[in-house]
Design a protein around this nucleic acid. Structure first.
Length: 625
DNA sequence: TTAGGGTTAG
């Protein structure tokens, strides 16, 4: 009997969905006269009731809930010789892959005598699903060698693998195939090409493909918008977002995540508010992705309170949401609140990950919470079995170093079991700048130079340390080294957003149409500040020039120009927000504190690392920065 | 049965 041959008793029907019960019939392919009519089957039937019809096997596979179930149907298909049917075999590979049993999928795939495009596609997709992109691409290459014709089913999988592997070489090759086969008219394929180029950093190529698409749907626009933001051109992202609307394409939540991400990169509060209004107007509910992106956007645009409002509004929060909010408090110097939130996170039974701890330790560091930082560093290792990586150590060094515990910081560098990178030595060098420790600074710098960094910031830091100590010969040496390596100091700039327009200032900038008023305002400020006891801190000027000239240099720093313009161009009492590409210099920090008191203004400064909130003569960083 | 999503040090 067929039952014996196939060992039907091996399979129970318990895992099949009741509503999708199969209508079973035995031997449907055999002549009906020789076969007795099948007994009526119900879900309670203990033995397996699939007919020899391949479709029946496929239906059963779709309903498998676990890999064990798939294995049972698989065994059955083998013994019934049904495995030779391409449809059944493909479905088996696909279902294995969907259950992330990719090695089973691949074992079966390798044994298949015949394969069609669906076989290859589901196998490529299987490896993509578990993130084994190397194998994913390997299968695609094998597919090409087999002489099969690519189609719009296989290509998106392969392009996605190139994207995630950052393999532009293969990406370009596949793009060429797309073009040759005429499949570029397929919106799915072309959107995947655009995404591949954008994420591999070839934004111009992405744009070319995008512009040539005969039809651009919402996904195509979304990948283009996200691509620009990621490669450092968030302005273009937001221009495209407006353009998309003009063309009548309605964005969805994923598009909004991309626009919000662009806003976060740009750090422009006015845009952030516009985007939030838009999201409310479109009645997009805050899912975990959109909500988390908005928390980050507000944090990076300077309003941690707006970020918290979004956080409180969200119904679903995961580890990324909590980490983003902790990081938001951290970069604004509100360490205590970061720690409180972390406690709440644990109470909500959300498991912190290694990124949560980076955010937490960095929050401790920015707020000078040394004991707490040590405590959480140990907790991470002991209670959560997270091995500290180089980022955690950098936070710890920064924490100890800022607090003046340079010996402990140095001791930690001896203990750590990770490869020391530029960041590690850079953090130590930064600490030496605050505490004027030249000996350790030289050791850190030596290691930095050995690692051969191309970051001019470190050289500037070292030369500042020498300048502080009046060691002008050493300052000149550092400069020479920079010249030898053809490194140039990154020019500083500050941006201020006024009435939805950005104004960028460089040191000594006189290009602004209201330049005359700006310098007049600076002069007034200078008089007021000096009356209040302000003395320019000329140690922050690198050049070995006389004190008066140094002071002139200081007075034309880009952040001072931007603040002066802010005082002219905004209404009295309103907050001034500026963004700087480098770290704020010590003199500008003192200057801004005093301006906030004398002019009764809150001034929010985003620098390369964090935010400073100046109010009533003090800064949220408590002069730790 | 094919394309797009959020967090991390200095």
């Amino acid at each position: 009997m067929f039952e014996n041959k196939c060992n039907f008793s091996a399979l129970s029907l318990r895992f099949l969905k009741p509503r999708k019960a199969l209508r079973f019939s035995y031997y449907s392919s055999a002549p009906s006269s020789t076969i007795p009519p099948p007994p009526p089957q119900t879900l309670e039937t203990r033995f397996f009731p699939i007919s020899l019809d391949p479709r029946s096997f496929v239906s059963a596979l779709v309903q498998c809930r676990t890999v064990a179930h798939v294995e049972q149907v698989h065994a059955l298909a083998v013994s019934a010789a049904m495995i030779e049917n391409l449809g059944v075999a493909n479905k088996l590979v696909y279902i294995y892959a969907q259950h992330k049993a990719v090695s089973d999928a691949h074992a079966l795939f390798s044994r298949m005598a015949e394969r069609d495009n669906v076989s290859w596609s589901v196998m490529i997709g299987g490896f993509a699903k578990i993130g084994d992109l190397g194998s994913c691409l390997g299968i695609f290459k094998e597919f090409l060698r087999s002489g099969s014709r690519i189609d719009n089913f296989t290509l998106p999988f392969a392009l996605r693998a190139c994207r995630d592997l950052n393999s532009i070489r293969w990406g370009m090759e596949i793009h060429h195939l797309v073009y040759k086969s005429g499949l570029h008219s397929d919106v799915f394929v072309s959107a995947a090409v655009v995404d591949m180029y954008a994420k591999c950093g070839c934004i111009e190529d992405a744009r070319k493909v995008f512009d040539r698409m005969p039809l651009r749907d919402m996904v195509a626009w979304t990948v283009m918008i996200a691509g620009y933001a990621e490669c450092g051109n968030p302005e273009e992202s937001l221009i495209l977002f407006d353009k998309m609307e003009e063309e009548g394409i309605v964005p969805d939540k994923v598009t909004m995540v991309a626009a919000v991400f662009a806003c976060a990169k740009l750090g422009a509060m006015h845009k952030a508010r516009l985007i939030r209004d838009y999201i409310s107007r479109m009645k997009f509910s805050l899912n975990v992705f959109l909500g988390t992106a908005m928390i980050d956007m507000y944090a990076k645009c300077g309003s941690v309170d707006d970020a918290r409002e979004i956080f409180d509004e969200m119904r679903e929060r995961n580890v990324i949401t909590w980490s983003s909010m902790i990081s938001a408090y951290g970069i604004h110097g509100r360490g205590k609140e970061a720690l409180e939130l972390f406690t709440k996170m644990l109470q909500s039974r959300v498991q912190p990950n290694e990124i949560t701890f980076v955010s937490l330790l960095s929050a401790c560091s920015h707020a000078g919470l040394v004991d707490e930082g040590r405590k959480y560093f140990h907790m991470m290792k002991r209670d959560y079995l997270i091995q500290p990586d180089v980022k955690h150590y950098t936070c710890m060094l920064d924490l100890l170093g800022r607090a003046g515990k340079l010996d402990e910081a140095l001791e930690l560098t001896h203990q750590m079991e990770v490869e020391k990178d530029e960041g590690i030595w850079g953090a130590l060098l930064g600490a030496c700048r605050i505490h004027g420790n030249i000996e350790l600074a030289e050791k850190a710098a030596q290691n930095l130079l050995q690692l051969g960094p191309r970051n001019p910031g470190y050289y500037v830091l070292l030369s500042n340390i020498y300048a502080n100590a009046g060691r002008w010969v050493d300052v000149a040496n550092v400069r020479e080294q920079m010249n030898d390596r053809t490194l140039k100091k990154i020019p500083g700039w500050t941006v201020i957003e006024i009435n939805n327009k950005n104004y960028k200032f460089k040191v000594g900038d006189k290009t602004h149409p209201q330049s005359k008023e700006i310098y007049e305002m600076l002069k007034t400020l200078r008089e007021k500040l000096e009356l209040a006891g302000y003395l320019p801190d000329t140690n922050f000027v690198l050049h070995d020039v006389d004190e008066e000239l140094k002071a002139e240099f200081l007075y034309s720093h880009s952040e001072k120009l931007a603040i002066a313009f802010g005082l002219i161009a905004t209404t009295e009492g309103s907050t001034i927000r500026i963004t700087k590409n480098l770290r704020v210099c010590g003199d500008c920090h003192t200057f801004t504190k005093m301006v906030s008191a004398i002019m009764h203004r809150e001034i929010v400064v985003r620098d390369a690392n964090r935010f400073h909130h100046f109010k009533d003569g003090s800064c949220s960083c408590r002069d730790y920065w």
